[in-house]
Measured scan of single mutants.
Amino acid sequence: TTYKLIANGKTLKGETTTEAVDAETAERVFKEYAKKNGVDGEWTYDDATKTFTVTE
Rank of each mutant, 00 (worst) to 15 (best):
T11C: 15
T11M: 11
A34T: 06
V21E: 12
V54A: 02
E15H: 10
K31Q: 08
G38Q: 06
L5F: 09
E27N: 05
V39L: 15
A48G: 09
K36E: 12
V54H: 02
T16S: 10
A26R: 00
I6D: 03
T18A: 07
F52C: 00
D47L: 06
K35Q: 11
G38P: 01
A7L: 15
K36P: 01
G14N: 08
L12T: 07
L5N: 01
L12E: 05
K4T: 14
G41M: 03
T25H: 13
K35L: 12
A20Y: 02
T25G: 08
T53V: 07
T25W: 07
D40A: 11
N8G: 05
T55K: 07
E56F: 08
E24V: 11
W43T: 01
V29Q: 09
T55F: 08
K13S: 11
G9P: 04
T49V: 06
T17P: 02
E32V: 05
F30V: 01
A34L: 10
L12G: 09
R28K: 13
T51L: 03
L12S: 07
A7H: 13
E32Q: 09
Y33T: 04
V54Q: 01
A23P: 11
T53M: 08
E42A: 10
T1W: 11
Y3D: 02
K35M: 12
V21C: 13
W43M: 04
D22K: 03
E19Q: 14
R28P: 01
G38C: 08
K31P: 00
V54I: 10
T51H: 02
Y45R: 01
T17G: 04
A7I: 15
K10S: 12
T11A: 10
V54L: 11
D40S: 13
K50P: 00
L5A: 02
F30Q: 00
K4H: 14
T16N: 05
T44E: 10
A34M: 10
A48K: 12
V54W: 03
E56Y: 08
E32A: 12
Y45M: 01
A48W: 07
A23D: 05
E27I: 07
K4E: 03
Y3V: 02
V54N: 01
D22P: 01
L12V: 10
E32Y: 05
K36V: 12
T18D: 02
W43Y: 02
Y33E: 03
V39E: 03
E32T: 07
L12R: 07
A20E: 04
Y45E: 00
L12A: 06
F30T: 00
V29G: 03
K36F: 09
G14R: 13
A20N: 03
T2W: 13
